[in-house]
């Protein structure tokens, strides 16, 4: 059985990549593979805001990732530079950068590109969804 990591750069709702990535993770796990990490980069980080609130008849991508992460113990990592640039922050980064408020969904963590490099080194395959 293989270890996968994903790099997700697709913007939520205007592109399909986030949904495709979710599907890939679900199916990989159902077939006995494991997911080392999902790394969100560029516009992909926008999915990590807990304030995303799509209409109730549409998929809530933030909650879908969070549910999967909690059920399957998957590491969801958001690039700190890409996140801050787009108004996504947790408490620590808000304090460090003198920002008011925080909106990172608790299922995600903020970190650096080193986490992507590590995921690439420790996985059999890295699959990009953009």
């Amino acid at each position: 059985m293989a270890i996968f990591s994903l790099l997700v750069t697709a913007t939520p709702y205007s592109a399909q990549g986030q949904f495709s990535a979710l599907q890939f993770v679900r199916v990989a796990i159902n077939n006995g593979h494991s997911i080392k990490r999902v790394f969100f980069y560029a516009d992909g980080v926008l999915v990590a805001s807990r304030l995303n609130h799509p209409p109730s008849d549409e998929i809530n991508l933030t909650k879908a990732w969070a549910k999967l992460a909690i059920e399957q113990d998957i590491d969801l990592v958001v690039c700190v530079t890409a996140a801050l640039k787009r108004g996504i922050t947790n408490h620590a980064e808000a304090e460090r950068n003198a920002l008011t408020g925080e909106n990172l969904d608790p299922a995600f963590e903020i970190s650096g590109l080193g986490q992507l490099t590590e995921a690439m080194l420790e996985s059999d395959r890295l699959i990009t969804f953009g």
Binding site: A2, F4, T9, Q23, F24, V27, A28, N30, N31, H33, D124, R125, L126, I127, T128, F129, G130
Partner: peptide, 19 residues
């Protein structure tokens, strides 16, 4: 299907997402 998609990525040495 998606199951074959996952397996296909393992049949090749690496994947290149052409964005």
């Amino acid at each position: 299907d998606y199951t074959q998609f996952v397996e296909l990525t393992l049949q090749y040495d690496k994947t290149v997402s052409w964005l």
